[in-house]
Design a protein around this nucleic acid. Structure first.
Lengths: 143, 143
DNA sequence: CGGAATCCTAACCGATACTG
DNA sequence: CAGTATCGGTTAGGATTCCG
């Protein structure tokens, strides 16, 4: 039985990997995906909100660059490369003049997209509350 | 109507905050929570897996330190402070000799815990697949 | 258009020593 | 036990320049 369900995969992973352990490869993977740009790229390349059920999202490099306001081209390229290497995104080069490069999520990338989009929503939804907490904490420390 | 549902909060946040925008506070918040130690601390302080339905998780500093193998005391303290400031964890000092300090999630922290625990599980469940993708990518680049 | 390569600085972060 | 403080090496990542 070579194919395993997601539940079986989790069950086996629980035996093999534990991100709480320092040397565990999953710890490094967690570190890798715990990144602002990873979150925003994955969020941008998925279909959510108004785009739900619209098929796979395909974006050009320049589109991504504009969507993720403020990202340097170094960070964008570097992050996209590592996502491609990990099999989360597919990079497609169309040899036109000038060249066109598009990015889209793989199935694996889609599975992570859900979580990343959730993080982005969480940050937006709880910004006010966090801000209030910070003010309370800072003024309390004042006295 | 001062109290809003989670859905209403998201709806309003969608108007006010957008982490895709560079200057948006939610972008910084997303950056803040996109952190390996934040993920592991939030994951450790929640009730999941075998601990489900067991009430709120309370851990001492030293327990956390042991659970998050390899964390330096500087990073642990620093991350816990920022989580406390943001209102995600509660820090309780019991003035015994020597002093006892415990940490637990707030409601806000619980809401993020779900996502963070999901990220940890994702990393563990897909480690093999990512590893295989990397090997394929690296050997393909070889030629 | 979509990068790669280089330089350079700010920050991160671990190690160490000290403390209530 | 649970920190704080300081130092110093490493790295992240922006700015700039050049290229197919």
């Amino acid at each position: 039985m070579p194919t395993r369900t997601a539940a079986e995969k989790r069950a086996q992973a629980r035996e093999e990997y534990d991100a709480f352990l320092a040397g565990c490869p999953s710890r490094q993977l967690l570190d890798r995906i715990s990144d602002k740009w990873v979150a925003l790229i994955l969020a941008a390349l998925g279909r959510d909100g108004p785009d739900r059920d619209a098929g796979p999202q395909v974006m050009r490099y320049s589109e991504l660059s504009r969507r993720l306001a403020g990202v340097s081209q170094k960070m964008l390229t570097q992050t996209l490369r590592s996502l491609e290497r990990d099999g989360l995104v597919i990079r497609t080069v169309t040899p036109s003049v000038p060249v066109t490069v598009t990015y889209e999520l793989t199935g694996l990338g889609q599975s992570l997209h859900q979580l990343m989009y959730g993080m982005k929503l969480w940050a937006e939804a709880h910004m006010d509350e966090v801000h209030a907490n910070r003010e309370r904490y800072d003024t309390a420390a004042q006295r």
